Simulated assay, not measured.
Amino acid sequence: MGPVGLVKLSGGDEVTNPDGFGSRETDSQNYVHNPVMVSEVLNYISMAPIGMVVDATVGLGGHAAQILEAISSSTLLGLDRDADALALAQTNLGKFEGRFRLVNQPFSAIAEEVTRAQTSGFASAGPVVILADLGVSSMQLDDSSRGFSIRNEGPLDMRMDRASDVSAERILNEASFDELFHLLRDQDEPHARRIAQAVVEHRPFATTTELALAIEKVVPYHMRRGRIHPATRTFQAIRIAVNSEGSELDRLLLDGIELLVQGGIFVVISYHSGEDRATKRAFLSASTGGCVCPKALGCVCGAVSLGEVLTRGAKLPTSAEISGNPRSRSARLRAFRRGGGS
């Protein structure tokens, strides 16, 4: 595989050879991302001026490839915490050599990386588009060694960044009952108390199947027979805690809106209610400038709008897409356009 694009290893120098950038099992070398809601994403970003696109969750490069293909004059800065995914994205985006830069960073580092792109000459201005496709990729779910899957046995890991020292096993085996209860309750788990108690009583846990089985035993019988596994919200809550996803998203939304050029587009695809609420709240606040004046009286607080929300309610995938890609069923897309406020 020849050098393509530009990759930056976390904490290191930029390199052009992706070899050794994370490791994959042999049968995963050709894994290709099936991106969600591509036509909707392209529709919104077509409203933006030409310039640098930031894919804040580039993953395997599925959306990035579609964007670079559709907008031939664009360049793309891709961020991701998962070095394994970036190694594959490097290959998947090979035909666009010279038009993209991949960086092994969390999306909370967007301001730092946009500044670096400008000072290095990769970009002449701020981003015209920011895209964030949140959640776990199919590659991560299908790799049992990552610990994201409920149904496939693996270690309780769940780290997006394998260099992190906080794993699911550590949280489950060390957190107090109150900490576990609040983690689960914040993710709308209706049986947070009994699940947290079961974890405390039966730990230590070492594998995903051990945890899933313990949860199955304590939830009501009817939940064990449903289409969705009863441990789904627990796995989601632990993954969010392991990767600090709440604070990461808040930082991305705040900095991203500020970084966009006038007329720039911000698109977020979320997969659970917490992410969607945070996105909706951030976009609404930016559109009103934080104004809380009664609508009937008009704004008297001097708030300045930073743009407009383009989506009236979250956009959902089509039934045809869900049929072809069942994992897209939870996707919720929201879009925002930056105005002239500062």
Results as ranks from 00 to 15, higher is better:
Asn92His: 06
Ala64Arg: 00
Ser46Val: 02
Phe96Val: 14
Gly51Cys: 02
Ala109Tyr: 10
Val128Pro: 10
Glu153Tyr: 02
Thr115Gly: 07
Asp157Tyr: 04
Val136Ile: 15
Pro127Gln: 06
Leu68Glu: 03
Ile71Tyr: 09
Ile150Asp: 11
Ser74Val: 09
Asp55Met: 08
Gly94Ser: 02
Val103Asn: 05
His63Val: 09
Thr57Ala: 03
Asp55Gly: 05
Ser145Phe: 01
Gly121Trp: 14
Leu88Met: 10
Val136Gly: 03
Gln140Cys: 05
Ser124Ala: 08
Ala163Pro: 00
Glu112Cys: 11
Phe107Tyr: 13
Ala163Gly: 12
Ile71His: 10
Pro155Ile: 11
Val103Pro: 09
Ile45Gly: 02
Asp55Lys: 00
Ser46Phe: 06
Leu68Asn: 12
Ala87Cys: 14
Val53Met: 01
Arg170Ile: 10
Val103Cys: 09
Gly135Tyr: 05
Ser137Asn: 01
Ser124Asp: 06
Met47Asn: 10
Asp84Leu: 01
Ile150Gln: 13
Val53Asn: 10
Ser145Met: 11
Arg99Val: 09
Ala123Val: 11
Ser138Met: 09
Val54Ile: 10
Ser138Asp: 12
Gly61Cys: 07
Gly147Val: 00
Ala56Pro: 03
Gly51Trp: 00
Pro127Ser: 14
Gly98Met: 07
Val136Glu: 04
Arg151Pro: 03
Phe107Ala: 06
Ile50Gly: 13
Lys95Gly: 01
Leu86Gly: 06
Leu88Cys: 03
Val54Met: 00
Arg99Thr: 08
Leu134Cys: 04
Ser164Trp: 00
Gly154Pro: 08
Gly61Arg: 04
Phe122Tyr: 14
Val54Cys: 15
Ser120Gln: 15
Ser46Tyr: 03
Ala125Lys: 13
Phe122Asp: 12
Asn152Thr: 15
Gly147Thr: 07
Gly121Met: 10
Leu68Val: 15
Ser108Ile: 07
Asp80Ser: 04
Ile50Asp: 07
Val53Pro: 04
Arg170Asn: 15
Ser72Tyr: 04
Ser124Phe: 08
